[in-house]
Simulated assay, not measured.
Amino acid sequence: MVVRWLGFLLLVIGRIIEILCSIIVASIAALAVGGSGLVSSNLASAVFRFSESWNQEAFAILEHPLLNFSRLQGVAWQMWLTPAAIWAVPIAGIAIIGELFGLQLWAFYSLGTAAALCGIPFFVGFMPQAPAEFMQLFMGVACTGAIAGFIYWLITGRRAGLIVRSLKQ
């Protein structure tokens, strides 16, 4: 009995680590695809502006003497980690939903992540003026999300619901 629970505990810990690593890889893929010109460069600058405005309070925390962050580390936080988190949160949300409900379809991860990433321009307050730019922006963001979701599915989404299935046994 103890061995069975220990095995289940190791399964849960391993699965959580696998999911987190898959979210990170899918987020890096989304940043790479989005940064390669598929997504408007104006969106990237809007994300950085949003990050800058959001991080003004964070700088006070980062510069606290107990945390021992230098100004350079604070700028690295502002310039890279916050925008990466903005791209990673929708991917993580789709991953959690897929894991909780045991959804193993590649279409769920691709289409769900595409739809979730389409919320980023609204979140950071970026809307293009021309209708053609509007469509191009959302097509680029949706394609970026579809690629990130498919990569997540390739790595770990195919085995979604593994923890719930093992609990039922």
Rank of each mutant, 00 (worst) to 15 (best):
I97C: 11
A30N: 11
S53F: 02
A116W: 01
I19M: 12
I19L: 15
G112S: 09
T144H: 07
A46T: 06
L72N: 04
L105M: 06
N42W: 12
Q73R: 10
Q73V: 03
S40D: 15
L9F: 12
E99I: 10
V12K: 03
V33A: 11
G140F: 09
Q169G: 11
L9C: 03
S27A: 15
V89P: 06
W54S: 04
W5I: 09
P121A: 00
S166V: 12
F69M: 11
V12F: 00
A58I: 07
F50K: 00
I91K: 00
A84V: 08
M79T: 13
C143N: 02
V33L: 13
A88S: 10
S27E: 07
L111W: 01
S51E: 05
S70C: 04
A107T: 13
W87I: 12
V47Q: 10
A95F: 07
N55A: 06
N68S: 13
N42D: 13
I147Y: 02
L9R: 10
G157H: 03
F59H: 04
G74N: 08
R165F: 14
S53W: 01
Q129F: 09
L31A: 15
M135N: 12
F122S: 08
I94V: 15
E133F: 06
A148Q: 05
I19Y: 02
W5K: 09
A132Y: 02
V75F: 02
L6Q: 04
G161F: 05
G145W: 06
F126H: 15
C143P: 01
V164R: 12
G119P: 03
M139I: 15
P83D: 09
L162D: 14
R4P: 00
G125V: 07
F122W: 00
T156K: 07
I28S: 13
P65W: 06
I24R: 00
E63T: 03
A95R: 09
V75P: 00
R71I: 05
C143W: 06
F122Y: 04
A130D: 14
C143D: 00
A142N: 05
T144A: 13
W106Q: 08
T144N: 14
N68T: 07
I13R: 12
L38C: 10
F48R: 14
G119Y: 00
I13E: 14
A46F: 07
C118I: 05
G112W: 01
A132P: 04
A148R: 10
Q169D: 15
I61S: 10
I86M: 08
S22C: 06
N68K: 08
I97S: 06
F126D: 04
G140L: 08
V2M: 06
L6R: 09
S51C: 03
V25K: 03
R165V: 10
A44E: 11
L10V: 01
L67R: 07
P90W: 03
L100G: 03
A26K: 00
P128F: 08
M79C: 01
F123L: 13
G125C: 05
L10T: 00
T144Q: 15
L162A: 15
Q73K: 11
F8N: 02
A58G: 00
L137E: 10
F48I: 10
L100I: 15
F108K: 11
I97D: 05
